[in-house]
Design a binder for these strands. Structure first.
Length: 153
DNA sequence: GCCAACGTTGGC
DNA sequence: GCCAACGTTGGC
């Protein structure tokens, strides 16, 4: 099992929105970056765990945990002209973008903030904290995962 | 709203 | 293939 961190702007889709979704499950649509796409398509598997990260908001940080419940499949929002994620270069015969399904597992009692994550030397090599990192989907090491889990309690 | 740090695009 | 211009991300 692998561990991941996935960013979403809570104004658009928050961990509460996921919890309130049918079956507490939703497609993670709209990833439009090749490196993130490759993680989703080539490495992410049903059963993996992911931190739900709230970005571009008052208190950026990790809000809780979700589970990947479906391997990657074509992101059909790329074919919807009315979608903000529309990409005419993605065609059904050759899908450019992929998504997984995610299921809500738990919401932390409090947000584990970005500021707090930066304070811990054990986390300094985290992809999330690397200068200039803009990935919306990235792997998390098992040790880092467990360390963060304890912070949240 | 600002801006650093990227990624993408397209002319050549 | 180079690289300048442009667009996006995301913290602050």
């Amino acid at each position: 099992m692998r561990y991941w961190l996935m960013k979403s702007e809570p104004d658009v889709f928050s961990i509460t929105d996921l919890e309130n979704s049918p079956h507490q499950t939703a497609p993670w649509e709209g990833v439009r970056n090749y490196q993130a796409r490759n993680f989703i398509r080539d490495q992410m598997r049903s059963g993996d765990r992911a931190y739900f990260y709230h970005s571009s908001c008052t208190t950026p940080g990790i809000a809780g945990i979700m589970e990947i419940t479906r391997d990657a499949y074509p992101d059909d929002s790329a074919w919807d002209p009315d979608s903000p994620y529309y990409d005419p270069k993605s065609r059904a015969a050759a899908p450019r973008w992929y998504m997984v399904d995610v299921r809500w597992l738990l919401t932390f009692e409090r947000i584990v903030t970005l500021t707090e994550l930066r304070r811990h030397p054990k986390l300094e090599s985290m992809t999330l904290l690397r200068r200039g990192n803009r990935l919306s989907v990235m792997p998390v090491g098992a040790k880092e995962w467990r360390f963060i889990e304890k912070l949240a309690v």
